[in-house]
Design a protein around this nucleic acid. Structure first.
Length: 428
RNA sequence: AGAGAGUUGCCGGAGCGGUCGAACGGGCUCGCCUGGAAAGCGGGUAUACCUCAAAAGGGUAUCGGGGGUUCGAAUCCCCCACUCUCUGCCA
């Protein structure tokens, strides 16, 4: 959530930023916000003055009662009646203004960092870099859904039987591969200084709000209505919300956490080849990184986190490229996002496997996540996160890129200690 | 799931419907004391918002969350959440 105090100080960067986000009536919205803000402050000023006199009168009534001057007390009481009504009205007014402000503010996305390219949609994302790993075949590589079926390692039909589409069942070496990847990613993260967190897989509404999934994105999350919980769409939600309403000490920063969780996404409206096979699931596994940093350090951290994720892809010998998402394609909460995509030879397409974002204060503002600065004042921190990594598309790419002429699939060297086997399927 | 008890500041812990942002103790911190330290003594020690050009100062709100009664609520009433104990159930 954007900081109203900052908008009040200097609205122009916000107007520009929102325009770059393709919000046409950005200026009007900011203007509305400022008006609401002014009205709110006017009302509060009056309200608090009234409350002040009210409090004082109440005290004097107390005194008069003690002194036994009942009639005088009654007189003061009757004088208060009108203020009391006015206070009620003003309270109502403030509440209305605040909820309008909230409604408006929650529709506004984060302001993009100056380095983010302008653009409408994914086609305007900038390819920043690409590694030099190539995969070549002297036969036509198959898509992973065929390979998975042939080797009986992933079963979509069973998933449909148990639950529905988008909930595959991993079997045998398919299941072991999942576990191996999770373990590999977590081990690497620990070596890189991240603390492993195993959070709840359901969150409450306050947590959903804190990281920006609620109030608007309910459609993305599965809801357990009876208990008022949501299934997490990513470990980012619980792991970032660990620090909700905290005031951290500078010496505790940066916070570097990682965690493996299944992720649950409704993905309403997705269709076509995007959802084929492992490309887009309702339940998938992911290891997530979360960092909380001082404002001055967040962009440096963003680069380091992204490089770290790239090192995982390199270790897995996958061809990948790094995108810088344009102003139109970055997520609602992000100020700057890098996407990492791997090349999947069977489908001949790039698959997004990681998204690394700096949210600056956008989440921290919602979370009320602060630190004490040199002057002992509380300031909002910056939050970041990144997938390291999301499993299904990694699995898709591994299967497709590492398939051999004989139909078997080689496991990358680094994973073998984790899988205990070096190949899926028959060798010649 | 049923019955009961509870939820107060960084922690422990008081609190009668009235001057309670909250006794008392501990912690932390500053000052004095000391050659230095301990002890001792004295002071400070929440957050958000409003006011103010800013600082100072002043004000409002906050005692799990929300609503209500009242001139006035940490204290009374209602709803919700959480914690603990017992019973039940169970990986």
């Amino acid at each position: 959530m954007l900081e109203i105090q900052k908008i009040r100080q200097d609205a122009q960067p916000f107007i520009d930023g929102l325009k770059n986000r393709n919000i046409k009536d950005a200026a009007e919205k900011i203007e509305q916000l400022l008006t609401l803000d002014q009205n709110r402050r006017d009302s509060i000023t009056e309200l608090e003055q009234l409350r002040n006199t009210m409090n004082q009168s109440s005290k004097s009534i107390g005194k008069l009662m003690k002194e036994g001057k009942k009639e005088e007390a009654e007189a003061v009481k009757s004088e208060l009646a009108s203020s009391k009504e006015r206070i009620k009205d003003l309270e109502q007014e403030v509440q209305t203004i605040e909820s309008s402000t909230y409604d408006l503010l929650t529709t506004l996305p984060n302001i993009p960092h100056p380095s983010v390219p302008l653009g409408k949609d994914a086609s305007d994302n900038a390819v920043i870099s690409q590694n030099d790993i190539q995969v070549t075949f002297n036969f036509t590589p198959k898509p992973h859904w065929d390979l998975a079926l042939e080797h009986d390692i992933i079963d979509w039909k069973l998933g449909v039987k148990l639950t529905g589409s988008g909930f595959p069942v991993y079997k045998g070496k398919g299941a072991i591969l999942q576990r191996a990847l999770i373990n590999f990613f977590l081990t690497k993260a620990r070596e890189a200084g991240y603390t492993e967190i195993m959070p709840p897989l359901m969150i409450n509404e306050a947590s959903g709000f804190g990281t920006g999934q609620l109030p608007d994105k309910e459609g993305q999350m599965y809801e357990v209505q009876l208990d008022g919980f949501y299934l997490i769409p990513t470990a980012e939600v619980p792991i970032t919300n660990l620090y909700r309403e905290d005031i951290l000490n500078q010496e505790d920063l940066p916070i570097k956490n990682c965690g493996y969780t299944p992720c649950f996404r409704r993905e309403a409206g997705s269709y076509g080849k995007d959802v084929k096979g492992l490309n887009r699931l309702h339940q998938f596994d992911k290891v997530e990184l979360v960092q909380v940093t001082l404002p001055d350090h967040s962009y440096d951290t963003l680069e380091k986190m992204t490089s770290y994720v790239e090192s995982l892809l390199t270790a897995l010998e996958l061809p990948f490229r790094r995108l810088l998402l344009c102003t139109g394609d970055a997520t609602f909460t992000s100020a700057k996002t890098y996407d990492l995509e791997v090349w999947s030879a069977g489908q001949e397409m790039w698959l997004e496997v990681s998204s690394v974002s700096n949210f600056e204060t956008f989440q921290a503002n919602r979370l009320k996540l602060r630190y004490r600065d040199e002057n002992n004042k509380t300031q909002l921190l910056h939050t970041l996160n990144g997938s390291a990594l999301a499993l299904p598309r990694i699995v898709a790419a591994l299967l497709e890129n590492n398939q051999q002429a004989d139909g078997s699939i080689l496991i990358p060297e680094v994973l073998r200690p984790y899988t205990g086997f070096d190949r899926i399927g028959e060798t010649i």
